[in-house]
Structure formats: C-alpha cells, structure tokens
C-alpha cells in the first residue's frame, strides 16, 4: 500500500457521483437496453418512413404475379393477390406499433387509476375495486378481448380497445401492489404530517415512486398487446382486408403454407422481432431501475 488515499471529506459532494450520471452509465452499459432499444428504434423509423421505404403500394393487386417467391423485384415475394409482401410488412409496422401504444395506453391508464385508488383509499373502495379486478383476472386476456370485440364489432380500433381493456386487471394489480409498498414507507407518513392533502400525496409523492416499475411492466406488456391484437386479426376480429396487419396476413396466408411459405414467414418474423425487441428492452430497463436485480455487466 504505497499510495495513500485522500482524506475523507464529507463536505466534498463533487466527489460523490450524481445519481443521474450513475443512471446513465448503467443504462449505457446495459446490453439489453442497447439491443432492445436499437430494434425498437429501427421499427419506429420503419413505421414513420413506411410510405418512403415501401417499394410498392401495399394494397395494389397484381394478378400476373400471384405467389411469386422472393426475388430482386419482390424481396419477400408476393401473396395470393400479387401484393408485395415486403411493402405490406413495412406498412404493417405502423399498424402494429399503433395498436401496441393504444392498447398499452388504455390498460396502463385505467389500471394505474384503479390500482392507485384501491391502494390509497383502502377499506371498502379497495375491496370493491380489487375484487372486481380479481374477477376479471380469472378470465384469460384473449377471452375478454374476444368477448368485447364480438360485442363492439370487428375492426382494428375495436380490437385495440378490447385488448387494452383486457389487460387492465394486470396493470391494476401491479400498480396496487407497488402503491401498498410505497404508502407504508415513512416518507409517506412524513408527507402526511407536513399537511399534504390526498391529491398532493398521490401526484407529488406517490406517482414519481411508482412510475419506474410501471415503465418496465408497460414495456413487457407491449409485446403481449401486439400478440393479442395479431391473434384477434388472425381470427378475423381485428384488422379488416386489405389492411396489411401482420396477424391478418398470417391468417390469409395459411392456406398457402406449403406452396408459398414466404407469405407467412415474413409477417411472422416481423411479429417475433417486435415482441423480442420490447421484451429485451423491458428486461434491460428493469435491470437498470431495480436495484435488487442489478448485476454487473460482464
């Protein structure tokens, strides 16, 4: 031990790393965030630039080119109506991200409201809200979504709403559990003792503390929502022809699986990449935000 450490100076705050810097460093070193983030970023760019990137009109029929295999002209081949699958997959990205954002948005907002209400109010409010959520939780998500679409009528908008509603119980439960933990921490009691009324307690003190876990859950939930919407479209209850929705493309192409597998392979791959991207990103965010799961990057 030749070198002597500088004497400890408790007033030297500059020596202490700022939390923001540390947060960024952890984020920058996290491979999951990089991989997932890049995948999602590429998808978002593709969705935004779809009209520019797509070489053909995704809905234009071409009777002469039915079921042609991938070629220089049609990178992903064409479907049973001669439509360019590459262009359809690219335009489908728009629909898929849109569906995901709306469905997760509905689920998260309604679920968080229920969870916060139940967790903060307690008593009979909590009992009524959470027993209602438990009741909905007993049904599989897709069954609730199916029922709602059957009731609302098949369309992509209704499918988004239905998927959103079907995941409300999930977000409500997660929010509720986080709120219970936070509201029993001493800082919450201290804020009450300072004289904060309930709106201030919820918005100012509670919300910032429950947002990080909700970001993780929403990112992971995004892929589930995309899958559910694709499933509804596959069943004919979501996007209607000729919309280039990936689930719908799978459904329409399944009769040709032996003769023209490319009709299914490419939209299927697109779904896989999207779901994977959000799952990896969600895992990464959780690693960064949750100190218990935090691990050193190898």
């Amino acid at each position: 031990m030749a070198a002597t450490a500088p004497p400890y100076d408790p007033t030297n705050v500059a020596a202490e790393e700022l939390p923001r810097t540390r947060w960024w460093r952890r984020t920058a070193r996290n491979r999951s965030i990089w991989l997932g983030g890049v995948l999602i970023a590429v998808l978002a760019i593709v969705a935004l630039l779809a009209p520019v990137l797509a070489p053909y009109d995704p809905t234009k029929l071409a009777a002469g080119k039915r079921l042609s295999p991938p070629s220089w002209e049609h990178a992903f081949g064409t479907d049973e109506f001669g439509r360019d699958i590459f262009s359809r997959v690219i335009h489908g990205t728009q629909l898929t991200l849109y569906v995901g954002v709306v469905a997760v948005g509905i689920g998260l907002l309604a679920g968080a409201a229920i969870g916060i209400g139940a967790g903060y109010a307690g008593g009979w409010v909590q009992a009524v809200l959470m027993r209602g959520v438990d009741f909905l939780y007993t049904f599989p998500d897709i069954l609730i979504a199916l029922g709602l679409v059957a009731f609302l009528g098949p369309s992509l908008t209704n499918a988004m709403v239905a998927v959103g509603i079907s995941v409300v119980p999930y977000y409500a439960r997660v929010t509720y559990s986080v709120v219970l933990v936070e509201r029993n921490k001493p800082y919450f009691e201290a804020a009450t003792a300072i004289g904060a009324g309930w709106p201030r307690l919820v918005v100012r003190h509670l919300l910032p503390n429950i947002v990080p876990p909700l970001i993780v859950v929403a990112t992971l939930g995004f892929s589930a929502a995309v899958l559910s919407a694709a499933a509804l479209s596959f069943l004919g209850l979501g996007a209607q022809p000729p919309a280039p929705e990936w689930g719908k493309m799978l459904a329409d192409g399944r009769n040709y699986i032996a003769r023209a597998p490319w009709i299914l392979v490419f939209p299927g791959l697109a779904i896989v990449v999207t779901v994977l991207g959000f799952n990896i990103l969600g895992d990464g965010i959780r690693d960064v935000l949750d100190p218990r799961q935090r691990r050193e990057v190898r």
């Binding site: 800082y187 300072i194 910032p208 503390n209």
Partner: peptide, 15 residues
C-alpha cells in the same frame, strides 16, 4: 408538526 424516528427513510427518495 412532527419529526419522525427514521431519518433514513422519512424523506421521499425521488424528490
């Protein structure tokens, strides 16, 4: 007003 026993946790960590 009140001062609590737990100075470590009586402040909101995110504010």
């Amino acid at each position: 007003s009140m001062i609590f026993q737990e100075p470590m946790t009586s402040l909101n960590p995110v504010l």
